[in-house]
Design a binder for these strands. Structure first.
Lengths: 194, 194
DNA sequence: CTAGCACCTTAATCTAGATTAATCTTTTTT
DNA sequence: AAAAAAGATTAATCTAGATTAAGGTGCTAG
């Protein structure tokens, strides 16, 4: 099993001895999902905080009118969970579904509590993860408030350049909060411009 | 000085001995602000995490077109800070300004680091604060995505019933992400309906 | 090879909410 | 009490983006 990407990621924020690393590795579950499988379903408690080794996932919300709203994508070296649900162990607002065959390293809630005792530095690590998630979410609110659909799309393209090749346009539209038809129109306009 | 509201709030999440309580009280600054004073300005580093003893504040963002976007209000027993800035000690995206004369209990970044050593339980407490902030922010994204302006307004009214009397309508409009004229129209419609 | 499905585009029409501008009301200042 | 400033309403017009509907492209499967 390849734990290196996770350990590399962790070492960006904390230093771990090799004993600590093996404690982490002991508590983490490796799991493969197939394309279209769900990692979390709206209404269930989110049981894992997952690190993406390979593949691609979407986190989305289904509203009363059965409309899907994508709130984030996750690819290699990203974390993915309904953090609100995981943290409080209450039912999830979001679904998380694989867009490709996907390999995850998963921390269950209980294992994570254990690990906090075994490797106290992880308290710090996961606080940073939550903080980053929080800051990113806040920035997204600001962006949705103050930018037009076209500006949001351009920002998305520069921020996730690989993403457009990887996921269908109607999902990008959903992420941007617009219809696929309007995204198509914007793309038409942008082609024109250059 | 009246520290009781803060201690009550803390005791909802953690238990503190009376020695620990005095450690907290020793590290917290009490400060009065006048109406219209700024607690944080966009571009400055947010120096405090503040607990509201009395008064009312708005957290807002000014975009390129000098438009103000209110992201949250804070009243008695709420926390207020540009958490993203405070946590990372980097320049703030938001302004925080008093809408009334306001009394705050403030934790400076350095004092808080000290306190984490003196009262380790506070690590837990402030993680919970951040988690709650995160969850609230996430729910807000979902709401902005899937509800119409009218629905958001109704939700706002039921969630912050006291607020409408306390802050001018054009600020509520800004919080809801609509113009004051349109809010006025909605209010007209709703009067009609009942 | 063609049927079917998943995805994308284009164009016409519609609507929630923005903009502008004028008037009215309430609060604050002097 | 008058004047000024701050806030709220109303109505006409405008626009970003939604909706509907039809046709196009390209993959995958029998």
């Amino acid at each position: 099993m390849n734990y290196q990407p996770l350990l590399n990621y962790m070492e960006q924020h904390i230093q771990l001895t090799s004993e600590e690393k093996s404690l982490v590795i002991n508590r983490v579950n490796h799991r493969k999902y197939l394309r279209n499988q769900y990692v979390v379903q709206q209404g269930d408690v989110c049981r894992f905080e997952s690190f993406v080794l390979s593949g691609c996932l979407k986190t989305f919300y289904v509203d009363q009118d059965a409309q899907e709203h994508i709130v984030m994508f996750a690819v290699e070296n990203w974390w993915c969970a309904d953090l609100g649900s995981f943290i409080t162990q209450t039912p999830a607002d979001y679904n998380i579904q694989c867009l490709e065959n996907t390999e995850l390293l998963q921390f269950s809630f209980d294992n994570l509590q254990q690990l906090y005792l075994e490797v106290p530095q992880l308290e710090r690590f996961f606080r940073i993860i939550i903080q980053n998630a929080y800051v990113a979410t806040e920035k997204r609110i600001v962006r949705n408030f103050s930018l037009s659909a076209k500006e949001r799309y351009l920002k998305f393209r520069e921020q996730y350049p690989q993403m457009e090749q990887r996921v269908p346009q109607y999902m990008i539209a959903s992420y941007l909060g617009i219809t696929k038809e309007f995204l198509s129109k914007l793309r038409g306009q942008l082609m024109q411009e250059d």
